[in-house]
Design a protein around this nucleic acid. Sequence first.
DNA 1: AGTACAATTTAAATCGTTTATTTAAACTAT
DNA 2: ATAGTTTAAATAAACGATTTAAATTGTACT
Lengths: 345, 345
Amino acid sequence: MAQKVKLSTIAETLGVSTATVSLALRDSPLVALSTRDRIKEQARALGYIYNRRAASLRTSRSGIIGVVVHDIMNPFYGEILKAIESELDRDRQTFILSNHYDSVEKQRNFVETLLQLGGDGVIMSPAIGTPPEDILLAEDNGMPAILIARSIEGLDVPIFRGDDSYGISLATNHLIGLGHRVIAMVGGTDQTSTGRDRYQGYVNALRKANIEVDPALRIPGPRSKQGGFEAAVNFLSLPQKPTAAVCWNDLVAIGLMNGIARAGLIPGRDVSVTGYDDLEEASIATPSLTTVWNGQSEVGRSAARALLDKLSGSHEPDGIHLIKPEMRIRQSTGPLRHSGHDNGN
Amino acid sequence: MAQKVKLSTIAETLGVSTATVSLALRDSPLVALSTRDRIKEQARALGYIYNRRAASLRTSRSGIIGVVVHDIMNPFYGEILKAIESELDRDRQTFILSNHYDSVEKQRNFVETLLQLGGDGVIMSPAIGTPPEDILLAEDNGMPAILIARSIEGLDVPIFRGDDSYGISLATNHLIGLGHRVIAMVGGTDQTSTGRDRYQGYVNALRKANIEVDPALRIPGPRSKQGGFEAAVNFLSLPQKPTAAVCWNDLVAIGLMNGIARAGLIPGRDVSVTGYDDLEEASIATPSLTTVWNGQSEVGRSAARALLDKLSGSHEPDGIHLIKPEMRIRQSTGPLRHSGHDNGN
DNA sequence: AGTACAATTTAAATCGTTTATTTAAACTAT
DNA sequence: ATAGTTTAAATAAACGATTTAAATTGTACT
């Protein structure tokens, strides 16, 4: 590798000062247009590469934004990330992505690393059990945080997420409207705000329809396709013989449908299943999945926008921003058939 | 935010020099153990945060490694990324992830950004049409590159990938062994090395079994679940009435099976379908998918390892590293039934 | 007491930018 | 011409760490 080209290399070969070069490359009107052109041309010719760490050392803006979620391979987060990416790209910000897999420690390491790199801000879907201090660590060191998808108690940081309680009640009401009375809830956990909200929404909808809430109809845990698949056994052997399932998300729903199909029943006919999120996949599943659109792209876009606005000082975001979910009715739900799924028993 | 704590803050409050503090925090034997302890304690007490950009300005090692692939939401890359992540984590390297969506320009921007940030190295699955110069840009500026999954002609950079030609011939042979003679190939593109290799493997296997290769049986294009789903229509209306499909990857296969099911046929019985990659999802699909394990975790792990070794100077990797794929037989393939999929016509 | 040696600590240069302040040159207006 | 403006470029001081040569201190031995 040839000697590294830096501002001073350009300056020397052109017989000007580094200050002039620095200003010229950033198109400052302080340097004459003709000089600017000469300098830019030379920079290109020499293959100059801007050294951001040197610059940010001086300016204390790195152009780096961190994003940490449970699992970037999970399509739910994937859709959010895609929206964040396109919003940040537009502002020419570099973003550093990480999974925390719900490990508070991994998450803290990430925030720490980001601080070391001089990150300008961070967007996070906090790990289960995140103590407020871990978020404050960022804020206190001048790196504003925005939360997505999950809240943290006792913390005043802007958050963007879907209205889970309302959303799940949409799904539940849809099933009730189809005549179902024994409706299970499959997946999720009480350890996240999202989990509690969704269960609450399910309970509320049942109550409002005067259906007794049977805690045994809840199968907590699954959050993945694999989990939903495995939960099918459990679901099919519930003594109350549910005719429908409100699932934690689309992945669980698809997994559950696969499990149900594997047992010889036809999802959408013998058992109605709703998902949550409306992933791309929902519409091509077999049967296509009735689900609730959870505004992933909206969450990602507006969280990123909020952070950028805060950084540029143009607007200070705060409080909770709830995106209104919407029902998407497809083939995985249908009217109650009186045989139920136990083959006429 | 309180005044920023830096080395000199610690030095002053303790009455030592910044040199001592710097050395102490990195556990240099040059500084007395007692002093080291005092300094570390103070650093903790003051909430000191190491400034990596300042340090790397001096040391020219940033601890940043870039990874760019087609689409991180694609589970195939997801599994590779997971392996890379865990390997880099072990070495406490930060990794910056990006999609290029097969845009050469987006990919070049990423490399450029990485250079600006002082990235130590980059792992890439190059975008379609990547000119060798774009890789050399990295190498020439002291940032070694390692390729994964896809090759680039005329470039001497280490690469790790599955043996596509061999792998796809495994799948093809499996179908031939089951009695199938009219076997379509669904998905993929000639624009990547992978695409050409896989088609070649399919052709070779057919030839070796003395089956005539009919170009019309190739449905190029699809690489996603959605794509496979849509290709079903096309597949089912081929005049040669194929009884089996070798798919580009698991996603296409699953999509295709969904499409086939939607048309009233039963995949695994009426039409045999093979996937490629052996994603987690393959085993829970309905029917479970016969596929070829493509060594994603192995590719990711060894590519990361190779880069780290190169950076540490302990070993210089080079050449092509082919991972041997393995057959995974499940329920989506079965013996040829003489009715074919056209309902006895 | 003087010397040698090891164990600690420090001063100062350096990494590649940015930016406030100066200087120099070129115009303007009297 | 001269003082006053504008415009253009240069100087030099940061930013926050690392690193090496040099200085300081302490110990041991003759």
